[in-house]
Design a protein around this nucleic acid. Structure first.
Lengths: 167, 167
DNA sequence: ACAGGATCCGTAAGTGCTTACATTTCTCGG
DNA sequence: CCGAGAAATGTAAGCACTTACGGATCCTGT
């Protein structure tokens, strides 16, 4: 017994469906990565990966630099920093040339953990490549979506559609 | 001055990059939808959409039914329910045939809000269709990714790769 | 008829981000 | 050289979910 509803009610809940779908997929992937670390008996969380990886690849890096490189806010980096320092994997020094800046670097423990995790990261990277191939280049599709959003956000598009419908 | 690192260190941080990218995109879309509601001076949050939409489309629904329909946990639905009841948009009754079940339905205020939001939802849905077209069917790509993950999760794939590398 | 287990739903706490706001430090024009 | 504004970072709180767990109710086999 479906209830009454406006005749022009949008059935295909587009934006919400797209957002929800993206969120579910990302959670699925993060969760799986976490399980792999647990199975390997390594104390490591997926959200630490970005910062740790950058430090391995580029050495000493400030919070701000890491945020830019990872495409997240400095706050996100700062929170990871806090966890990594608490775990003894990363140390922070003040930049002698700029007292505002905190420069992060791997500790010996951090380097050891990276060596221990490298095979798992390789496996995950290969699994991602495999998935991407099997899904016929979903990464390219995501890049196209990002490019389309850069040209005009979903907000701009919705505003335009709203305005043209109600002149 | 790049630091030393294992020779086989995985540079392409596949799984992490994929997960992070999906997350960023979903946040971008949700945030934009929220801004549109704010611009229309409507007190509404994007996370309420799924439940509200289901109630419009199908009338009275239990928490569990909604969770299945939306592909989230019953907890997520329960939290939205709490907010929607607090806002006076939704009422809940016990199912006379099953005392465990809480059946949700729109109130008059809820119905009024839906009528007021319908144009915005239509616009968002059309914007999503437009984006999807412009990105050459990113939805189809996401569906292929979901299907690939259903066949074998990223965890299973990574495990297999790890095992075959270390016999 | 009722014990044991399954189901439905709730709260609490955690995750991985975000925005908003505060603090400290730097820089540059007057 | 000093004060205004900019920049780097930090904390607090929120968001949209999740898992973990517990209470209430239902169902099934004996």
């Amino acid at each position: 017994m479906a209830p009454e509803r406006p005749a022009d009610y949008p059935r295909a809940s587009g934006a919400a469906a797209l957002g929800a779908r993206l969120r579910r997929l990302s959670e699925r992937i993060d969760r799986d990565a976490g399980r792999l670390y647990a199975e390997l008996d390594v104390r490591f969380e997926q959200r630490w990966f970005g910062v740790l990886n950058q430090l391995v690849l580029h050495g000493r890096r400030s919070v701000g630099d890491l945020a830019v490189a990872l495409g997240v806010t400095h706050v996100a980096v700062s929170q990871v920093r806090q966890a990594l320092v608490a775990e003894g994997l990363v140390a922070e020094d003040r930049d002698p040339r700029d007292g505002r800046s905190r420069v992060l670097r791997l500790t010996r423990e951090g380097e050891a953990l990276v060596r221990r995790l490298a095979p798992a990261w390789t496996a995950l990277a290969e699994a991602a490549v495999e998935l991407n191939t099997e899904a016929q280049d979903v990464l390219a599709a995501l890049e196209r979506l990002e490019a389309a959003l850069d040209r005009s956000s979903i907000l701009d598009r919705a505003r335009r559609i709203l305005d043209s419908a109600r002149p």
